[in-house]
Nucleic acid binder design. Structure first.
Length: 177
DNA sequence: TAGGCCATCTGGTCCT
DNA sequence: AGGACCAGATGGCCTA
C-alpha cells in the first residue's frame, strides 16, 4: 500500500532528508534569523497554530548557548527521536504475521493491526484455557504460522465484512489505544 | 489533481 | 538549564 521507502532508523541522510535539508536549510535559518534576534518561524509567518501572538510572548533566551544553536540541537534530538519511534514501529511490523513483501503497513495500520493481533491472541489463549489445551501443550498454532488474513478477521468470521456484521470483533474505537 | 502518508521544523510544556 | 515529549504547520512524494 505504501510503496514509499521509510528512511532507515540509522540513516539520517536519505534522499528525502537531503531534499528537506536543502529546502529548509535549518542551520542557516536558525543561525541567521534567530541569531539576529528575530525568530524564524513559519507559524509566525502564516499566523496559524497555537502560537502566542508575536510580541506578546518572547521566550527567554538562555544565557549560555545561542538560541540558534540550541534549536539546531533540539531539531537533531527530535529527528533521532522520531527515527527511534520508526525503528520501534518497524520492529512491531516485523513480528506481526507476514504480509506480502510489497505491502508495508502504514503507521496507523501497523498500530491497528497490532491491536487486533493482540486481541486475537488473547481470545485464542482464553479459548485454549477454557478447553484445557494449555495443559496438553498442543493444539495451538504459533502466531507466526497464522496468515495475516486470519488475524485480520478472527476465527469466527470468514471475512472482515462478516466480522463487521456480526460485531464479533471489538471495534477499535471501543477500546482505542 | 486531490488526498494520504511521511519527515522535518518549531514552540510550548513537563520532567529531571 | 536542558532534554523529552507533544502537537501544529509545511512541503515533498506517490497513487487513484
Amino acid at each position: 500500500m505504501s510503496p514509499k521507502v521509510l528512511c532507515a532508523s540509522t540513516d539520517l541522510h536519505t534522499s528525502r532528508d537531503a531534499v528537506t535539508r536543502s529546502r529548509f536549510s535549518p542551520s542557516a535559518a536558525a543561525s541567521t534569523a534567530e541569531d539576529s534576534g528575530e525568530s524564524f518561524s513559519r507559524k509566525a509567518q502564516t499566523g496559524t497554530g497555537g502560537e502566542a501572538s508575536p510580541g506578546k510572548h518572547v521566550k527567554q533566551r538562555s544565557r549560555g548557548e545561542p538560541r540558534g544553536r540550541r534549536r539546531v540541537k533540539a531539531n537533531d534530538r527530535e529527528r533521532s527521536r522520531m527515527h527511534n519511534l520508526n525503528s520501534a514501529l518497524d520492529a512491531l511490523r516485523s513480528i506481526l504475521p507476514a504480509l506480502p513483501e510489497d505491502a508495508k503497513l502504514t503507521k496507523i495500520e501497523t498500530l491497528r493491526f497490532a491491536h487486533n493481533y493482540i486481541w486475537a491472541l488473547t481470545e485464542t489463549l482464553q479459548m485454549a484455557d477454557q478447553r484445557g489445551y494449555l495443559q496438553g501443550g498442543s493444539g495451538l498454532s504459533s502466531p507466526a504460522s497464522v496468515s495475516s488474513a486470519e488475524w485480520d478477521s478472527p476465527a469466527e468470521c470468514a471475512t472482515s465484512a462478516e466480522c463487521d456484521r456480526r460485531s464479533c470483533c471489538p471495534p477499535l474505537s471501543s477500546h482505542e489505544v
